[in-house]
């Protein structure tokens, strides 16, 4: 699916790849996780209360509507964390983190 964000400049940066929900995503060095994810898809997370997809709101670490998970269950604020090669991100709570983890 096409992305939400549109790159307008600064496209000569070094490319990098990481995983989102198991699928590889191409990004550029210096991208926030949010930009890296939303340039190739339209959703960042789901509201817990059933009102649908969210894609962040403030981009300045204030609204907290952009948290995603790493494969080991840590949480990252997508608008204020840089994408890194090899990261494994999941947009839904990974099964293994809660509450089954010993």
């Amino acid at each position: 699916m096409s992305g939400r964000f549109v790159r307008l400049a600064e496209m000569d940066r070094k490319p990098l790849t990481f995983l989102v929900d198991g699928a590889p995503v191409d990004a550029l060095e210096g991208d926030t996780l949010m930009v890296a994810i939303l340039t190739s898809s339209r959703r960042l997370r789901d509201s817990e209360f059933g009102d649908g997809a969210r894609s962040g709101f403030c981009l300045m670490a204030a609204c907290q509507d952009c948290w995603v998970w790493t494969s080991d269950g840590d949480k990252l604020r997508a608008c204020s964390t840089f994408a890194r090669a090899g990261l494994e991100i999941s947009r839904r709570a990974p099964e293994a983190t809660w509450p089954n983890l010993p």
């Binding site: 948290w67 840590d74 949480k75 983190t97 809660w98 509450p99 983890l101 010993p102």
Partner: peptide, 9 residues
């Protein structure tokens, strides 16, 4: 009490 709780905000 719950080691995995460290991940939660």
């Amino acid at each position: 009490l719950i080691p995995a709780i460290g991940k939660l905000n």
